[in-house]
Design a protein around this nucleic acid. Structure first.
Length: 493
RNA sequence: GGCGCGUUAUCCAAGAGGCUAGGAGCCGGUCUGCAAAACCGUUAACGUCGGUUCGAAUCCGACACGCGCCUCCA
């Protein structure tokens, strides 16, 4: 099987063949840095992180470019509100973005360019567009004339007439056609500006991506990604700019991730139903959020809710618990490289061996099929079950069975490196979840410990009534007691 | 109005003509003084109505419901 991916432009899954064998150029629209990122940004970030990681895993030499749009109306507005300059705002939210994405475990792209570092490239493209008759100057602004580009709207499969029928487009008198869009905007007093052949001004939205992708990936490159909401107008406009200026195909594969919904409705700023990554991470572990995002196919919508996050956490805990048990077994029982003498596996051992043998082929098959991470997770869970069963039913681990368990561990590390999961020490991660939960209770650890001791004493004298009373008391406060041969520990419900 | 997408068991969610997806939950079991936790096992589904086919969640058509884009958006 070979990698196939869904191309928005054709509406089909296509076999991936890079422009240059062994190499991939990939550009993903980052963020406009004027506020903290929300869960929708988290999804886009994670989705294309997986694409990036999987391409590398598949052996490609990947150049991954993800930009910061650090000059824009929204940034300027925000700066005016706060009585500061655009740079302060942009830098603040670039830093916040970096922090959020690092928490979510995103690998660093090869390059993370800023629009304002590419003003020259932007001006060059605009000049070329004007020279070729695709753009025109109008009172200090420069606009792209959409009617001059025959392929306009080919990505979203629409036409200009239909678009205007529902028209909520402002007809600016500076524009020749209502759908024309700004490449360059003359600056008003007090606004940031750069010198240009058309006077002082700043770039419009869209053009920065054409300039930066061309700078780092060339006129034609393999993959361009972003959220579905960027298909129109952002990506259409990028195509129009780049293809008209360069006279060649811009992007070979267009990838778009689905939305994050709240109660089945798109999360968006205008609806006011959004959560920032920071807010969510106060309550949930970042890996839980990442796991949640990966539990659905990247093109489907996902519904963000406490219940769904809780379920994701339960699932991830299941995997980490299994890995913790595996590490426990492996600790002190380093599997020897010597092949065991004549030794055969038990029935459950053979079943696990089978899962282990199928693991990578099935994982790769899932990921090859348009990055189906949800299916890939299914493979992991099946292996977890087989491993748990093997561990539970195997007494006295032989060299062969230890080797098997060690292989399981390696496979999870390998798959985890592609999914950006299981980077933590399992026992540490589980402990962190526990302590995070304990932040939400109103009883001190000392008090809990005192009651546990009291209960132990009661049980020692077979005063089970008192013991159960204490257990119920703690349960009412959300504390679950875990009795074991080694004593009693506790957890938050 | 134009264009597009979706509807899978209690919930989340893969799959896309015949082959156990998976997770959470329920229930049963192991363990326990009893529980809990953990682990094991188990259950159930393809929106409605037609059509194509030996065979349809899967393909085709109609309908219903939900959603998205057409304005800034990941």
């Amino acid at each position: 099987m070979a990698l196939r991916m869904y191309n928005t432009q054709t509406g089909e899954k296509e076999l991936f063949v890079p422009l240059t064998p062994g190499k991939v150029g990939m550009y993903v629209c980052g963020v406009t840095v004027y506020d903290y990122c929300h869960i929708g940004h988290a999804r886009a970030g994670v989705v294309f992180d997986i694409v990036f990681r999987y391409l590398k895993y598949a052996g490609y030499d990947v150049t991954y470019v993800r930009n910061y749009t650090d000059i824009d109306d929204k940034i300027i507005n925000r700066a005016n509100q706060e009585g500061t300059d655009y740079r302060t705002i942009a830098d603040r939210y670039i830093q916040a973005f970096d922090e959020d994405m690092a928490l979510l475990g995103l690998a660093k792209p090869t390059v993370e360019p800023k629009a304002t570092d590419h003003i020259c490239g932007i001006i060059t493209i605009i000049e070329a567009l004007i020279a070729k008759g695709h753009a025109y100057v109008s009172e200090g602004d420069v606009y792209y004339a959409v009617e001059t580009f025959p392929g306009y709207l080919k990505l979203s499969g629409r036409n200009l007439e239909d678009m205007q029928a529902g028209a909520r487009v402002e007809v600016g008198d500076k524009k020749r056609h209502p759908m024309d869009f700004a490449l360059w905007k003359g600056s008003k007093p007090g606004e940031p500006w750069w010198q240009s052949p058309w006077g002082n001004g700043r770039p419009g939205w869209h053009i920065e991506c054409s300039a930066m992708s061309m700078e780092f990936l060339g006129s034609t490159f393999d993959i361009h990604g972003g959220g579905k909401d960027l298909v129109f107008p952002h990506h259409e406009n990028e195509i129009a700019q780049s293809e008209a200026a360069n006279g060649c195909q811009f992007v070979r594969y267009w990838l778009h991730n689905g939305f994050v919904n709240i109660n089945a409705e798109k999360m968006s700023k205008s609806l006011g139903n959004f959560f920032t990554i920071r807010e969510v991470l106060k309550k949930y572990d970042p890996e839980t959020l990442r796991f949640f995002i990966l539990s659905a196919h990247y093109r489907s919508p996902i519904d963000f809710s406490d219940q769904n996050l809780d379920e994701a956490q339960s699932g991830l805990e299941r995997i980490y618990s299994c890995l913790a048990a595996v590490d426990d077994v492996l600790q002190g029982h380093a599997p020897s490289d010597e092949v065991a003498v004549i030794e055969t596996l038990s029935q459950v051992g053979q079943e696990l061996q089978e899962k282990v043998d199928q693991f990578l082929p099935r994982f790769v098959e899932a990921m090859d099929d348009d990055f189906n991470a949800a299916l890939a997770l299914g493979v992991l869970f099946e292996t977890v079950r087989a491993t748990n069963r093997f561990l539970a039913e195997t007494k006295g681990l032989t060299p062969l069975s230890l080797q098997l368990v060690a292989t399981v561990r390696h496979l999870f590390v390998e798959a985890g490196s592609v999914l950006g999961l299981f980077g933590s020490e399992p026992s540490v991660w589980l402990e962190r979840i526990k302590s995070a939960k304990s932040g939400q209770i109103d009883i001190t650890h000392e008090e809990i410990e005192r009651l546990i001791v009291e209960r132990a004493e009661a049980r020692a004298t077979r005063d089970f009534k008192r013991g159960d009373e204490i257990r119920d008391l703690l349960l009412a406060k959300g504390i679950v007691l875990l009795d074991s041969a080694q004593g009693t520990t506790w957890n938050v419900k």
